[in-house]
Write a protein that binds this DNA or RNA. Structure first.
Length: 649
RNA sequence: GCCGAUGUAGCUCAGGCGGUAGAGCGGGUCAUUCGUAAUGACCAGGUCGGGGGUUCGAAUCCCUCCAUCGGCACCA
């Protein structure tokens, strides 16, 4: 190790320092105020604790609270420690585990026999402020594994023992102290707890979480917090959450009278007329899009004998999540067990297998708006976003290996068009590769993953890796959309499958006259109509584009003498294919405008004495205060033109 | 499925240390005929999620089941 090292600052100036100098000392060398304001450093690009020694030549920047990224990271991380300390001070019997930074905040998992209550959160917050006010110094040391394990054993912190044991050889075991309170942590951290803003954080919720995500290990109690640099940022975030909750599709579904759920059929939506209108419009649109892109639509049975599911491998992996179907023994002596189909692929393969297919017919694209039913775990159900009964916009592309690339590009293009039409211009793409439990040997998986990866790259589609999350029969691309409060949901998917064709005996005759297994591309664009509509409602806050709006226009009378005229206007709109309704109630126009605006009806056509006299309507557009007075013909043709679905416009 | 919370009128919610329930919106009726985000009055609506227990008496306390919400786990 050299005795002196060269430190270079962002302005390009550099100086020699003794090896092992800390960023805190460097900051102090610049100015006392910087030493006080400093929160951390970046040393050769690595986020660095002010107290860690620097042991080689380095470029360094000193961070203060003005450096947003570093500041938020530290604030949230230190708040996690301060919260854990507060909890252990209040309830010393609590064992601590882990507490990472997450988006907007942090969580910490605790093991404690008694449950935390919502009231406890305020108590913990108060204690945290006390710790912040104490401005206790933060320091760290690197310990040997043996010393750390002994330390935690003695204190009964068994989870920490397990964590220390799991740290790979050669990685430092760093021990941190916030005042006298100790935690195992990679760091970095702030200089002292007093650097934390005491008014810009909040404990949000308590939840259960399995230790190490393993359902066979103990259930811990997780406390979530959010933290920011300034009180205003916190307030803004809370306000945003509140606004987001108003967009929740479950809430809008109720207030807009689109659908409901009830105890007798958990996870199975009852679609009301207006909700079903959205559904039907979307389905017609998808049918046209797919037809125009070379898909043939089919329909397959809802109830299928278990032998088919055994053959496909779904029985083995998912039979606990399948609805089994049988009939009264007095009526049937067959004794067969069938299942409601949880997915469509084996059925589509039956259609493929029903006759001999030539390579000339490939790629063969078979689509179905397939009704599927899955017994999802009760805790997974979530409005329309996770249901037990749903319809997939499913299709299977039977093709040769050489066609994977072109078909992938074609699919991604189609999906992008559809998403853009539906208001989603940006979306996440995840690449999920082989899971631990899977069908097919590794050579098949190598081939499938390589093919999908190459095809995705060739299509110019960037993605993030999602290791081990593929389907049991093949790797998949997931097209992910986000709900009102930022939760991710897989909607579209593309899966490359070399396994199912062999299992289900799918064959085509190649150019060489020999039979081959085709490759199956499993794909969906929306995923399920249910989930997609849920996201769609949230994305538009219920104000759907005109072509999807259940009620496109309301003709509202101002005086009852306009009733007859309103009826004729209404008839004209309906003749033009507009979903219009009349409001001839004995109410003031103010009331009607308010009511239909709240119901998010895109157009209100008000008619009173003037309109009757001139053959006009007063057209009011949702979200706008201006009113167009125009002849009925003009209004009808304007609405009709605007109401055309994007693929027919 | 697991941890925790919640469940009162169509909706949003108040109340309830045990003595059989309230508001606002919505709905109905009547009056009002009004010009772009709430006209007024009156009326009807609830076995307080289901079942069981304690009690003279349970919406309120206890047990249990169901559903929902927030997470975790799961997601073909």
């Amino acid at each position: 190790m050299p005795s002196t090292i060269t430190i270079t600052f962002p302005d390009g100036s550099s100086r020699d320092h003794p090896c092992g100098v800390t960023a805190r000392e460097l900051a102090a060398g610049i100015s006392p105020s910087l030493a006080k304001k400093a929160i951390s450093a970046h040393v050769n690009g690595v986020h660095w604790d002010l107290g860690w020694p620097i042991e080689g030549d380095a470029g360094i920047t000193i961070n203060t609270m003005a450096d947003e990224h570093a500041a938020l990271e530290l604030i949230r991380h230190d708040l996690a420690h301060v919260m854990a300390r507060a909890v252990q001070e209040l309830w010393p019997e609590t064992r601590v585990t882990i507490g990472p930074v997450i988006e907007n905040g942090w969580y910490y998992d605790f093991d404690r026999a008694e449950s935390f209550t919502p009231d406890d959160l305020a108590i913990i917050e108060k204690r945290m402020r006390k710790i912040i006010n104490a401005a206790d110094p933060v320091r760290s040391e690197i310990w040997s594994r043996g010393k750390a394990i002994a330390f935690y054993r003695e204190r009964g912190e068994n989870y920490k023992v397990e964590l220390v044991e799991a740290i790979p050889d050669g990685e430092a075991i760093r021990m941190y102290w916030h005042g006298r309170w100790q935690d195992l942590c990679r760091g970095p951290h702030l200089q002292n707890t007093g650097q934390l803003p005491g008014d810009s954080f909040r404990l949000q919720s308590i939840a259960g979480a399995f230790w190490r995500g393993d359902p066979d290990r103990p259930m811990l109690q997780r406390i979530y917090g959010i933290g920011f640099r300034r009180r205003n940022d916190l307030k803004q975030h809370l306000k945003m959450l509140e606004e987001a909750q108003k967009r929740d599709h479950r809430r809008l579904g109720k207030s807009m009278d689109l659908f409901h759920f009830q105890e007798e059929a958990p996870g199975m939506p009852f679609w009301h007329p207006d909700g079903w209108t959205i559904y039907s419009e979307l389905r017609s649109y998808m049918a046209r899009k797919q037809k125009a892109n070379g898909y043939r639509e089919v329909n397959t049975p809802l109830v299928v004998d278990r032998t088919l599911w055994e053959q496909s491998g779904h029985w083995d992996k998912f039979h606990e999540h399948m609805y089994l179907v049988n009939v009264d023994e007095k009526i049937s002596s067959e004794g067969r067990i069938s299942a409601l189909k949880p997915m469509n692929c084996p059925c589509h393969v039956q259609i493929f297998n029903a006759r001999q297919t030539s390579y000339r017919e490939l790629p063969m694209r078979i689509a179905e708006f397939g009704s599927c039913t899955r017994y999802e775990p009760s805790g997974a159900l979530h409005g329309l976003l996770r249901v037990r009964g749903f319809v997939q916009d499913d299709a299977h592309i039977f093709c040769e290996e050489s066609q994977i690339e072109a078909e992938t590009a074609r699919f991604i293009a189609l999906l992008s068009e559809v998403y853009a039409d539906l208001g989603f211009t940006s979306f996440k793409v995840k690449f999920s590769d082989r899971p631990d439990i899977r069908a097919g040997d590794d050579t098949v998986w190598d081939k499938a993953e390589e093919a999908l990866e190459a095809a995705t790259n060739a299509a110019g589609c960037s993605y993030e890796l999602n290791p081990g999350e593929g389907a049991f029969y093949g790797p998949k691309l997931e097209f992910v959309l986000t709900d009102a409060i930022g939760r991710d949901w897989q909607c579209g998917t593309l899966q490359v499958d070399f396994v199912m064709p062999a299992r289900l005996g799918a064959l085509y005759v190649g150019q060489d006259g020999v039979r081959h297994h085709p490759v199956i591309l499993h794909r969906a664009i929306l995923g399920s109509f249910e989930r997609f509509i849920g996201i769609l409602i949230e994305n538009y806050s219920g104000s759907l584009p005109l072509w999807l709006a259940p009620k496109q226009a309301v003709v509202a009378t101002i005086v009852s003498t306009a009733d007859t005229y309103a009826e004729t206007v209404l008839a004209r709109l309906r003749d033009a294919g507009i979903r219009a309704e009349g409001d001839m109630r004995n109410e003031k126009i103010n009331y009607k405008v308010r009511m239909h605006s709240l119901a998010k009806v895109p157009y209100i056509l008000a008619v009173g004495e003037k309109e009757v006299e001139n053959g006009t309507v007063s057209l009011r557009t949702l979200g706008s205060k201006t009113i167009d007075v125009l002849p009925v013909d003009a209004a009808v043709s304007r609405l009709a033109a605007r109401a055309r679905p994007p693929d027919t416009a």
